[in-house]
């Protein structure tokens, strides 16, 4: 009971922290892009699973929008508190560290999924809804992919932010270099690519016609689960050993 109160209190604080006014406006604009492109698809008189999946879902929703949102929130949930020094108020409490990490992770995942997943769902409904059952399945698959990807990115960079203060830049580098360039050059990276986990997970509902989706859905789910478990465990481990600097003293 007491730990549930603490959990929901931390979630509440984290949500308010992540949804700063100005930032939310920019993020909503970002999330609006896939929806606008879906509208454009319809305006061009096209309702196609294939080209929509490639042009909007693959190149924008899952390659740019989802990672950016999840990296921003994931690295900010602890990162902003460490930067500002408010982490002390959170940690000087008789709350088990795993509960703190869990509350932060769930908040970050919720916000990322709401933003990136919501945008993908709305865009998918606009463009793929009229196609019928296949279209709805494809749209659901895309949302599932974004959800799995968001969860992976969020927990990875939640952990990274406890190890370095430049988690966000590292996240961006990971996204540009690892996911962006290297995974095209070296196909073996697929087992270590969040984008591949997301695409593989989507295959469980509908085989999306996306280029170089290399993992089966089972493998993708397992690898994603391992990634989340390992990174969150690392985060708990790190938070238990968390040290404040001596201060300007």
């Amino acid at each position: 009971m007491a730990s549930f109160v603490a959990f929901s209190e931390i979630v509440g604080i984290t949500l308010r922290q992540l949804m700063g006014r100005r930032r939310t406006v920019w993020l909503l604009l970002l999330a609006a892009l896939p929806v606008l492109l879906a509208v454009l698809f319809r305006a061009a008189g096209r309702t196609e699973i294939d080209s929509y999946s490639r042009i909007v879902f693959d190149t924008i929703a899952i390659t740019i929008l989802m990672p950016l949102v999840a990296i921003l929130f994931g690295s900010g949930a602890f990162g902003a508190e460490i930067d500002d020094g408010t982490i002390v108020y959170l940690l000087a409490k008789p709350v088990p560290r795993w509960l703190v990490v869990l509350a932060k992770a769930i908040s970050v995942m919720a916000v990322s999924i709401a933003l990136a997943g919501g945008s993908t769902a709305l865009a998918g409904a606009i463009e793929l809804g009229p196609i019928g059952e296949d279209g709805l399945k494809a749209a659901a698959a895309q949302v599932l992919g974004v959800v799995v990807g968001s969860v992976c990115y969020a927990s990875l960079f939640l952990a990274v932010s406890l190890f370095t203060r430049r988690a966000l830049v590292i996240g961006v580098g990971y996204m540009l270099v690892w996911e962006g360039a290297l995974s095209f050059m070296l196909p073996g990276i697929a087992n270590l690519s969040i984008r591949q986990y997301a695409l593989g997970a989507a295959n469980a509902i509908y085989p999306l016609p996306v280029q170089e989706s290399r993992l089966s859905s089972d493998t993708a789910f397992i690898l994603a689960a391992v990634l989340v478990a390992v990174t969150l465990a690392l985060a708990v481990w790190r938070l238990m050993r968390f040290e404040l600097p001596g201060g300007s003293d």
Binding site: E9, R16, V95
Partner: peptide, 25 residues
């Protein structure tokens, strides 16, 4: 009571103290 002035600026004073009370169980 740490030295750094930072607090959750978006909370009201009462909300902040209540946050502490709740995390204390």
């Amino acid at each position: 009571v740490p030295e750094r002035e930072a607090v959750y600026a978006f909370l009201t004073g009462l909300e902040y103290v209540r946050f502490n009370a709740r995390l204390q169980g």
